[in-house]
Amino acid sequence: MSAPDPDCARFLDVLCPMHAVLDRTGHVVHAGPTLHKLAPDGNVTGRRFLELLELRRPRAGDTLAELRAAAGEKLHFRLRPPPRTELKGVLMPLPAALAPEGGLVVNLSFGISVLDAVGDFALTSGDFAATDLAIEMLYLVEAKSAAMEASRKLNARLQGARIAAEERAFTDTLTGLANRRALSHVMERLAQTDQDFVVMTLDLDRFKIVNDSLGHAAGDHVLREVAQRMRAATRDRDTIVRTGGDEFVLIFAGLVDREKVREIAARLISQLERPIAVGGETCRISASIGAALSCDYGWADPRRIMTDADAALYTAKNAGRGCHRVHRPPGEAPLDRSG
């Protein structure tokens, strides 16, 4: 085994700290200081190169002839002992004037595997050639991770703020009507004033069929149209709440006239029964309504009134589509017939 000229070796050590000089039998006769760190025992000199590294691309090979044939090409190696690091490389035969005769010089680099390699082999910036971009790459990875982390935190905070804002919101985003949160707010307020009011609970009929046959987008369109028609059929000071998918609650402050309640309910139903155009289709839905008047109660407990309006709605639904019923407090005559 003949080692290269010491001056030549020093020269290569600085320019290519991950090079190996192979003799004509494929054994390492000299290696750069960083390459030594990759060997389990910290020394690659004297080892057969292809025992340490597996040639994988452009063509897998186990013999020195195959290695020699790939001179000048971009090579992919893998370290045989764990952690089986991937390495990039290029090799050139030594010029005839340089020892060892018939030898090769292989220069290696980590490529993307440098991220793990610096940890696996405890490398420092001094282990890389001054021209190697490895340190810049490590820097970039850390810098980008730090920036991504800051962005991720910002997104998480914004998302949290959005959810909090939605939870505080009183508006149903689809229809622009009040939502369930607003309803409890209105009910609380009503409980604190002496003003009479009417609670109407309204369920759409046949809406599920529209949603199932024409799709959710069509369903959303119908709900917006329904909201629009309910607004047109009521006064500005009345509260319309979408409490669920196709369920609504209407609150009429200051209303005490039972006949008037029936009139409004009938008007709402007839407006909602008008055909609704969705894309090329026309769909027909209807609504069932139950109502309860606070003036029917000695003490107007909004929760109780709501429950009774629901019971009236249940009765209306049992009577078929498009019906309305007004609740009568217990002890009085049974439920009104609808008009």
């Binding site: 696996d120 420092t124 910036s125 490590l138 982390e149």
Partner: peptide, 9 residues
Amino acid sequence: DFDLGARAG
């Protein structure tokens, strides 16, 4: 110490 491989955070 500055360990190249010890990515912070």
